[in-house]
Amino acid sequence: MQNAGDSHPAVALPKRDTKRSLMHAFGWGLFLALLGLSWEGAEMNPGVLVSDASNMLKFASDFFPLDFHEWDFYLAEMVITLQIAVWGTVLSIVAAIPFGILSSENIVPWWVYQPVRRLMDAARAINEMVFAMLFVVVVGLGPFAGVLALFVHTTGILAKLFSEAVEAIEPGPVEGIRSTGASAIHEVIFGVIPQVLPHWISFSLYRFESNVRSATVIGLVGAGGIGVVLWESIRAFSFPQAGAIMVIIILSVTLIDLLSQWLRKRVI
């Protein structure tokens, strides 16, 4: 119904931005094209899931009944895995503090943060499994190779996360310290770190969770812990034992995740 006596001026919807709609459509087209092209490369073949279903059922049944006879040995190896994760994470936190600050563009000039960031990129780009294989060659088979692998890779990740937190700080408190005549180090200690500490703790706990998961697999290349035992039982086709080991891994990882999530909630 037209309201003749309406004193309000007429309103109209804003014109549709054709350029933006086109960009939108183009973006989706690009994404679908990417999916299609990758189908070939990834040799996608969902059919086998159906045709070989009976094979898989047979394979799955080989795991049962699970064989927990050597549970105390598995548990001991699981503890070693956790210990690898603890040391790998702690060392990486210690290293990520200076590297993180040196990759923050609000703290250091570009000729410092650029090279440091590239170094951290490299540490992050190479998977911990690859580092594990390399360190096994250098320091021999065993957990220490695993610790070093986690250390290097996690340093790359934490340094990036740490520096992102540093780049988001309020400049005010830093200037507050600067105005007292303090040195640059003091500015970082009293101006920057108190602001980022809760985030840093949360990131570190989160990486500890991931490192527990990673530590269970780096054993596959001989870098110690429960992964070694798992790999050996799979190679020996002892599937009931492999199944038991996986159950222990799942339980431990879940437990650690819950614990660490609970802690993370408290610091933020």
Binding site: G172, P173, E175, G176, I177, S179, T180, F190, P194
Partner: peptide
């Protein structure tokens, strides 16, 4: 700078301390 004190509008103290 040590001989010049600066008081900021936003105080700029270390909140956690």
């Amino acid at each position: 700078r040590a001989r010049v004190g600066f008081i900021f509008q936003q105080f700029n103290l270390v909140n956690r301390m």
